[in-house]
Nucleic acid binder design. Structure first.
Lengths: 186, 186
DNA sequence: CGCACCATGTAATGCGTTACATGATTTT
DNA sequence: AAAATCATGTAACGCATTACATGGTGCG
């Protein structure tokens, strides 16, 4: 459902292969969506059957042949329609760490602390990523997809969302680590 | 996978029906996990087949008969094992609003603004919910499941996570709404 | 009179992951 | 010599949602 529009969204900038789309996704929207290559290939096939994209095979010497997908007018319309319609709900969250925490009252304090500090390290790594490598990676995409000023504004906003999310997560972990330290009964 | 441990986690407090489990989930962990009743019933059946829970049917006059599930020793061990093992990754995020935003550079400014302010309202509602109704609902669960001080500490921590998340989301929306107002080119 | 609540389940369908299968070139 | 990159796909499986099916009680 969403992957469909991600593929249409990127193909709207120009023709691409499935393999290429996977790399674009990993390098630009991985922080708020991901998909396996196999799923991308099957979804592309479905989109072609629905007439939203077309493909031609380009033979290559040295390299495997590749199938290049191009968005159709129907595909553009479908994409624009989705973009225009507002999301009527705050998207539901699924956070395994909170589930574990909710049921963890019988764990040894030390175990809880280890788990939470490990999570803190992981989120700190992500935060660093949002602050350093993403901005330079975005520069690359800008010229590759010939992005407009509006594109850059919106892409930066999605990066900023990731940054704020990780800052919040770390602040929360600090809070609860401190509380467990002082109030948790072995 | 996770639902399995949610069911074991609640049944670890005492025997319950599928219907009852659904209500507990909706009233205490809905902010970080959700599941449909049909999925709960099928998962319970699977857990029973695996020997992690048992059930007896209680006939009722007036009301439909109900099937009451009880956790087994094997179920308790399985749960504890999962709780003890740390999560080795920051759990991946899937956020449709960010996907839409990423591809929205051709939308009319007014449409974007409408969509973002609608989202702001939705998240403000959730924030109010975390600050008012959840605390009182938690009081109820506390006595119903005969919660320990550790339970209360951890449950409050999950509520707090929701509160911080919504505050962060609203702050981010305010930032990007302001930026679009000033920099987005129709 | 109609809606919500209590209570359980099955069936169909869709979305997503993992595993399998192939194979040349380029980099370490 | 091994690993990563380029490149495409199918098959099996599992998780999740939606729809279907039933039916009594209590409340407004």
């Amino acid at each position: 459902m969403i992957l469909k529009y991600i593929l249409l969204g990127f193909l709207n900038y120009g023709p691409l292969t499935g393999y290429h789309l996977k790399r674009l996704i990993d390098q630009s929207i991985a922080n708020f969506w991901y998909a396996e290559l196999s799923q991308i290939y099957t979804t592309l096939k479905k989109l072609e059957a629905d007439g939203l994209i077309t493909s031609q095979v380009e033979p290559q010497a040295d390299r495997p042949d590749r199938r290049i997908y191009t968005i159709t007018d129907a595909g553009r319309e479908d994409l624009q329609k989705w973009l225009r319609e507002p999301l009527l709900e705050a998207s539901p969250v699924k956070e395994p760490l909170l589930v574990k925490l909710f049921f963890s009252s019988s764990l040894p304090k030390q175990n809880l602390m280890t788990q939470l500090t490990l999570q803190k390290e992981l989120h700190q790594q992500k935060l660093t990523y949002y602050r350093t490598v993403i901005p330079t990676e975005m520069q690359g995409k800008t010229s590759m997809l010939s992005a407009s000023p509006n594109d850059m504004l919106l892409w930066e906003a999605t990066r900023r969302a990731g940054e704020l999310y990780e800052e919040m997560y770390i602040r929360w972990l600090d809070e609860i680590i401190a509380q467990i330290e002082h109030q948790y009964q072995e």
